[in-house]
Nucleic acid binder design. Structure first.
Length: 271
DNA sequence: ATGCGGACCTGTTAGC
DNA sequence: TGCTAACAGGTCCGCA
């Protein structure tokens, strides 16, 4: 489900409810998500207080006064803050219960998400260490992209979705950014000119920023920490619109499969 | 080094 | 209406 805008929306939704909260109890109802859930969480976390809720790539970082929790929502994960404990529904796999009674609940039907305990610096964790730059930072620019793409034959869409290249761009926003930049998703990354990388870098920043503003994209069941859906779906110009007219030129939007992912583009606007 | 396909898991939708 | 196949927001890993 969540790409960067949805994770950031979630972060903003839960942060004000969690900072300063002291953990009372951890309830694990599922043996494993992406990885086996560490039983030591149940013994280690009670008593610790959340100092900050940060995001790196599509990971949420809960910084505690000692150690950190790394959270990834996978394809279908979502978080809710509940004012008090409630009976769990289907796929409500984890509850973090605080001394105030507030509960942070992780819901994840497909179980591709992750919850990891990280005693040391989370940015040095093996899963985060090799990640590329944040797309909304100045590190993402045309020169960086051209240099990294040099000599590479991979299609530009899977290239920009690779988290070693840039983080946060998933399947929806990759198609949207390429449409805005007028670049075919199948163009080999190594063949793209500096000026087109410039347009793409700008498009990525714009589409992510606009999606964050709208509270993310809700396709089926995404909700931010407050349970509200995101409204960016209405602003999608190509994703999920196969056969419909292009918003710019009225040509039919096409759908192809690229790297096992559905990919949408306008054959007239993108070259 | 790069790039691809498979795997993980459940739910929903499209098609016969 | 009911069954089956394909597909869905991610990404790690192993292999060529």
């Amino acid at each position: 489900m969540p790409e960067l805008p949805e994770v950031e929306t979630t972060r903003r939704g839960i942060e004000p409810h969690l900072v300063g909260q002291q953990l009372a109890e951890v309830v694990l109802r599922c043996a494993k998500l992406r990885w086996p859930l560490e039983r030591e969480l149940v013994a280690t976390l009670p008593g610790l207080t959340i100092r900050a809720v940060e995001r790196r790539a599509k990971y949420l970082l809960l910084r505690l006064d000692r150690g950190n929790l790394l959270l990834h929502l996978g394809m279908s994960g979502s978080l809710r803050v509940l004012p008090q404990p409630q009976p769990p529904g289907r796929h409500d796999h984890v509850d973090l219960i605080f001394t105030s009674g507030v509960v942070l609940r992780l819901h994840d039907p497909r179980k591709f998400g992750a919850l990891l305990w990280c005693p040391g610096e989370p940015l040095q964790h093996r899963l985060l260490r090799a990640l590329g730059p944040e797309p909304l930072s100045d590190e993402l620019n045309a020169h960086y992209l051209r240099k990294l793409a040099s000599g590479r034959k991979q299609a530009v869409k899977p290239f920009i979705m690779s988290q070693q290249v840039i983080v946060g761009v998933g399947n929806i926003y990759a198609s949207e950014a390429l449409f805005r930049a007028g670049i075919l998703p199948t163009a080999p990354a190594g063949s793209i000119s500096l000026s087109r990388w410039q347009r793409l870098a700008t498009a990525i920043k714009q589409v992510l920023n606009e999606a964050i503003e709208a509270g993310g994209t809700t396709l089926q069941d995404f909700t931010g920490g407050d349970g509200k859906p995101g409204y960016f779906k209405q602003q999608l110009q190509v994703y999920g619109r196969a056969g419909e007219p292009c918003t710019a030129c009225h040509e039919q939007i096409r759908q192809i499969r690229l790297g096992q992912r559905s990919t949408y583009y306008c054959p007239r606007c993108q070259s």
